[in-house]
């Protein structure tokens, strides 16, 4: 009874409570678990959506296509690379008199070796690429890639495949 009514005792008790509260606040502690959960989710999302390996590109420059740009080339500098529907590659060198040599059937590796050899002999070498319309794009990229890899001047142009070209390709098996 005395202790309840005693103001002094109450004061002391109040101070004690305050002190205890203060001490508790010093040891203030946040539960980080939900925070970490959310961050992990975000992290997973960004890891999943990031594309780290950007694809490569192969740069192509076409001629502007104006009539004024047309140049006459010596057939002796020309190499025809013809690709048939079946994916066979025929390589033939032009002669200065306007005709061309017999086509050679090559694979990609051989083509690069031939081109490197000819390119060293003749720095003005020009490659004319004639792809059959039904040949696959994959092969076209491979051919361009081999030309890029070859240690020669990269001068090539795309040209439409025509009847005479198909006849040439028949020689190497179509």
């Amino acid at each position: 009874m005395a202790s309840v009514g005693d103001t002094g005792g109450q004061e002391q008790r109040g101070r004690k409570v305050q002190k205890w509260n203060k001490r508790k606040r010093i040891g203030f502690h946040i539960d980080m678990t939900p925070y970490v959960d959310v961050i992990m989710l975000l992290l997973t999302f960004f890891i999943m959506t990031t594309t780290l390996n950007q694809p490569q590109v192969m740069q192509i420059n076409l001629p502007k296509g104006d009539d004024a740009d047309k140049v006459k080339v010596d057939m002796g500098n020309v190499v025809f690379i013809r690709v048939s529907e079946k994916g066979n590659i025929g390589l033939s060198k032009g002669k200065s008199d306007g005709t061309e040599e017999q086509p050679i059937k090559v694979n990609l590796e051989q083509m690069r070796n031939y081109l490197e050899g000819w390119g060293k002999q003749n720095p003005d070498l020009i490659m004319i690429l004639k792809f059959h319309r039904k040949a696959k794009y994959d092969l076209m990229i491979s051919v361009l890639d081999e030309i890029n890899k070859a240690d020669i001047e990269k001068r090539y142009s795309f040209s439409k495949i025509e009847e005479p070209d198909l006849k040439v390709l028949e020689v190497i098996g179509g």
Binding site: V57, M58, L62, K64, Y137
Partner: peptide
């Protein structure tokens, strides 16, 4: 691809790249 290259050439887009 050749058709596309022709179109690009005709529209004076002579610089482009193939993605590989």
């Amino acid at each position: 691809i050749q058709d596309l290259m022709d179109i690009l050439k005709e529209t004076k887009n002579t610089r482009f790249s193939f993605v590989t």
